[in-house]
């Protein structure tokens, strides 16, 4: 009964309250924070790194950094998941820099994004099956530059707001929008290309 009530109280507690308790040594509070926020961190790092070991390592490092640097978190500026995801991103980018995986988006060809106007002339007889489309988009996601891919992950998959994504990526909201547009345009072009090339 007592444990049940205590568990309920922890589940109802706000992030700053849990954070304070975790900093004072409450493992229950830390576990509650972990259950709330680790899925986002883990999925984000796993999707971008495509390596579960790296995703686990970074998730672990993020939560330990949370305990070490609690005083740096300002709940008025961002919610905790946004702040943690920002830490995860910086850790991930450091990893990419070490392993030379980072590909800057602002390469000379960044202006040559595929233009993707509405196409009313799409032939209804020529479209991919649902499974084919999903496979094509999944493949296209893996081929996207990291800076576009992370916007798709955060905006489309995690359904975070533009403001949250702008805080995580430390870029203006307008840049979030433009990156998302470019990422979607690339994926749509890839789908169209796959449709055109499918055997009739």
């Amino acid at each position: 009964m007592f444990l049940h009530r205590r568990q309920h109280r922890i589940e109802q507690a706000s992030d700053p309250e849990l954070l304070l308790a975790a900093q004072q040594g409450s493992s229950d509070a830390l576990a509650a924070l972990y259950h709330r926020h680790s899925p986002l961190i883990y999925r984000y790092t796993l999707r971008l790194s495509r390596d579960s070991a790296i995703a686990e390592e970074i998730t672990q490092e993020v939560f330990l950094a949370l305990l070490r640097n609690t005083d740096r978190y300002d709940s008025r500026r961002a919610n905790l998941s946004t702040w943690l995801c920002g830490i995860a991103r910086r850790q991930l980018w450091r990893h990419f820099e070490r392993t030379q995986r980072f590909v800057p988006i602002d390469s000379p060809d960044s202006d040559a994004e595929p233009f993707d106007p509405p196409s009313p002339d799409d032939d209804p007889a020529q479209h991919l099956t649902r499974a084919e489309a999903i496979a094509a988009v999944r493949h296209g996601l893996d081929e996207l530059p990291l800076l576009l891919k992370e916007v798709i992950v955060l905006c489309e998959f995690e359904e975070l707001t533009y403001q949250q994504v702008s805080l995580i990526l430390a870029i203006p909201i307008g840049t979030v929008r433009s990156r998302l547009h470019r990422a979607r345009a690339r994926l749509a072009a890839l789908l169209r290309h796959a449709t055109e090339n499918q055997p009739s």
């Binding site: 509405p118 799409d122 479209h127 649902r130 489309a133 999944r138 798709i152 998959f157 749509a188 789908l191």
Partner: peptide, 15 residues
């Protein structure tokens, strides 16, 4: 069905 609709459906499934 145009590419955007297909993309939205595929993204939803992947979500």
């Amino acid at each position: 069905m145009n590419a955007h609709t297909q993309l939205d459906q595929a993204l939803e499934a992947l979500r």
